[in-house]
Computed example of a mutant assay.
Amino acid sequence: LRLMDALMGVKRGVPGATLPELKQRRVAKRDTPVLQVDEPEEPGGRSDVAVDNPVPTPPFLGTRVVKGIQLKEYAGWLDENALFKGQWGLKDAGSIEAEGRPRLRGWLDRLHTEQLLEAAVVHGYFPCVSKGDDLIVLDEDGGERTRFTFPRQTRGRRLCLADFIRPEESGEVDVIGFQVVTVGSRIGEATAKLFEANAYREYMELHGLSVQLAEALAEYWHARVRSDLGISAADPASVDGMFRTEYQGCRYSLGYPACPDLEDRAKIADLLRPERIGVHLSEEFQLHPEQSTDAIVIHHPEANYFNAGGRR
């Protein structure tokens, strides 16, 4: 934001306005070259993830659409640290309190009064099993409806997202959740108008807030899912604990290391039909409006974030 303010000052001819000097990148010199050596894959098959955890009973099978979710319902799930420091570039506590919080209150009031938010969710529960590295979503008759293939760690615990689902050979059927949430297209249209008007500071603030509000809605709905599945007793008392995922289960968004294949979004879209809440998938497998997220929701007590390219 400071850089954009300086740029606009120069562009408008404000006396004394200058751009900051470029910082020189410094790379430490090495006496010897670094050799890239592929580490050998450690032997072993499936990870040691438990397969005897209780399988919860979902409130329904299939999908449901929920519209008209009010800002007050999910605003408390806003990750202010990610917003102030990550999106708005406010690095110290003083600037956050003196500048960040007042502007946040102003933006939230404006979003409410101008009705720029259209929060909606489409979610569902489906029977499933796993086979090797595959998550197999079943239809009502027990046949295969669709299949996701996930990467497995080659070292350490050898985790794979499919390991958190009952294996097919167990003879038991598990349950998997999927969700797509959006705060709608109006807020994106408002940010575009700010950009066209060269109001870059306001654009960056509103864009950053819109992205974090979509995440807040996703966190809020994941908590609803845990409650529906009867596993919310492990939820922490504080919102900070929620952001540290100190609860049972995990919400995996596509594109992250455990499920990196964005083409899998087409499978989620086929299951949930998110166009019912105004969300569409582009040819590049991006969600539109931008302020939308999708996720695979797993209930297993050991489910957590991990890098499929290495150790836990």
Score class of each variant (00 low, 15 high):
Gly310Asp: 08
Gly184Arg: 00
Glu215Lys: 02
Ala258Met: 12
Glu205Ile: 12
Leu71Pro: 03
Arg224Gln: 15
Asp31Trp: 13
Glu80Tyr: 06
Gly142His: 06
Arg155Met: 08
Leu271Ser: 06
Lys91Trp: 15
Phe150Gln: 06
Gly68Leu: 03
Leu22Pro: 08
Val183Cys: 03
Arg46Ile: 13
Glu114Thr: 03
Pro15Ser: 06
Gly188Ala: 06
Glu97Ile: 11
Glu21Asn: 12
Gly106Gln: 10
Gly143Pro: 02
Ala192Trp: 12
Arg251Glu: 02
Val297Glu: 12
Arg2Asn: 14
Ile187Ser: 03
Ile277Gly: 02
Leu159Ser: 05
Lys29Asp: 11
Ala258Val: 04
Arg312Met: 12
Leu159His: 07
Asp261Ala: 13
Lys267Ile: 08
Ser47Ala: 03
Val121Phe: 00
Arg152Cys: 03
Asp261Pro: 06
Glu283Ser: 09
Leu229Tyr: 10
Leu159Val: 09
Ser210Pro: 07
Ser282Met: 06
Leu159Thr: 00
Gly44Thr: 09
Pro56Ser: 07
His123Gly: 09
Pro151His: 12
Gly255Tyr: 04
Trp88Asn: 07
Ala237Cys: 01
Lys11Tyr: 14
His207Leu: 13
Leu117Glu: 03
Asp163Thr: 01
Leu71Asn: 10
Val297Arg: 13
Tyr203Thr: 09
Ser95Lys: 11
Asp294Tyr: 01
Lys29Thr: 11
Glu263Gly: 14
His222Ile: 07
Ala120Arg: 06
Arg251Ala: 10
Gln291Lys: 15
Glu219Gly: 02
Glu302Ile: 02
Tyr200Cys: 00
Glu39Leu: 14
Ala237Pro: 01
Thr63Asp: 06
Pro102Gly: 09
Arg155Tyr: 08
Val279Thr: 00
Lys85Pro: 01
Asn53Phe: 13
Lys23Thr: 01
Leu138Asp: 08
Gly310Leu: 07
His288Ala: 11
Asp52Ile: 05
Val225Thr: 11
Phe60Lys: 03
Leu104Thr: 04
Asn304Gly: 15
Val55Trp: 10
Asp38Ala: 14
Leu206Tyr: 13
Gly241Leu: 07
Leu161Asn: 08
His112Asp: 14
Asp79Ser: 08
Leu206Trp: 10
Asn81Gln: 14
Leu61His: 07
Ile296Gln: 13
Arg201Met: 09
Met8Pro: 01
Ala6Phe: 02
Phe178Gln: 10
Glu263Pro: 05
Pro260Tyr: 12
Val34Trp: 05
His123Val: 02
Glu275Asp: 13
Ala28Phe: 14
Glu290Gly: 03
Leu19Cys: 02
Trp107Ala: 12
Ser210Leu: 07
Ala269Thr: 03
Val211Gly: 01
Pro54Trp: 05
Thr113Asp: 13
Ala119Trp: 08
Gln115Ser: 15
Pro56Trp: 05
Leu111Trp: 13
Asp174Leu: 04
Gly230Asp: 00
Asn81Trp: 15
Val175Gly: 02
Ile96Ala: 08
Gly124Ser: 04
Arg152Ala: 01
Phe243Tyr: 15
Ala120Pro: 01
Ala303Glu: 00
Met204His: 11
Leu161Phe: 12
Glu283Leu: 06
Ala258Tyr: 00
Leu281Asn: 04
Gly86Lys: 04
Phe243Asp: 03
Val211Ile: 09
Arg12Thr: 12
Glu39Val: 14
Gly171Thr: 09
Gln248Ile: 08
Phe164His: 05
Asp270Cys: 05
Asp228Leu: 06
Gly184Trp: 08
